[in-house]
Amino acid sequence: MDLTLKVWRQKDRNSAGQMVTYPIKGISPDMSFLEMLDVLNEDLLLRGEEPIAFDHDCREGICGMCSLFINGRAHGPERGTTTCQLHMRHFADGDTITIEPWRAAAFPVHKDLIVDRSAFDRIQQAGGYISVNTGGVPDANEIPIAKSVADKAFDAATCIQCGACVAACKNGSAILFVSAKVSQLALLPQGQTERYTRVENMVAQMDIEGFGSCTNIGSCAAECPVGISLENIAMLRREFIAAKAASENLP
């Protein structure tokens, strides 16, 4: 396959960037999208040009490191697929492919296609945990959890923190990501003791980071590579309303 790539190049956080066009030849349809970029980078290196910087690590769809806004879609055109699991057979010979970084004020660009997602970590630090120290915990089977509840919590827990929800959302909202953690812990009996404080603090941090506000468009869930459901967002709001009404936390 011969392709034309239009790739966002940006030297560093403080520089302006632009789209640069690269023709690329001889791509095998069995390559993954990132392997196609590897090929381009090897070419660039041999030509003495700077290779394109992009985030990636496990290349099996679980670490959440890869990103890329491909042809106008977060993680490209295939649903339920991270960029690293996207294969070139989903493109046609002669195609032009645009590749851009996640766009959000809360995700500033470090370089080329690499963005800073540390805002997500800070939101997790605001309350995405159950406060138990190592040791001194009850036996694992002491508290039975209905399978249906455990399964639901699991569904929420599968979030890989890649940021596709923010990238796809017209408003740059991070609520699907935040709600996944809030739901997981709110559903489990272990998470009950801190449920109010957790949702209050995580939502507050989400706002501080400069993410937009959810308007229930649904693009986040549609583009989520692991299928986090919008039900979690509703759950976050229930938790938020309950917390604001019942908690004794004053700002």
Binding site: K6, W8, M19, F69, N71, G72, R73, P77, T98, E100, R103, A168, K170, I217, G218, S219, A222, E223
Partner: peptide
């Protein structure tokens, strides 16, 4: 985004 296709994921 320079190229964006939100119609693929929302109304």
């Amino acid at each position: 985004y320079q190229n964006n296709h939100p119609e693929e994921n929302s109304s």
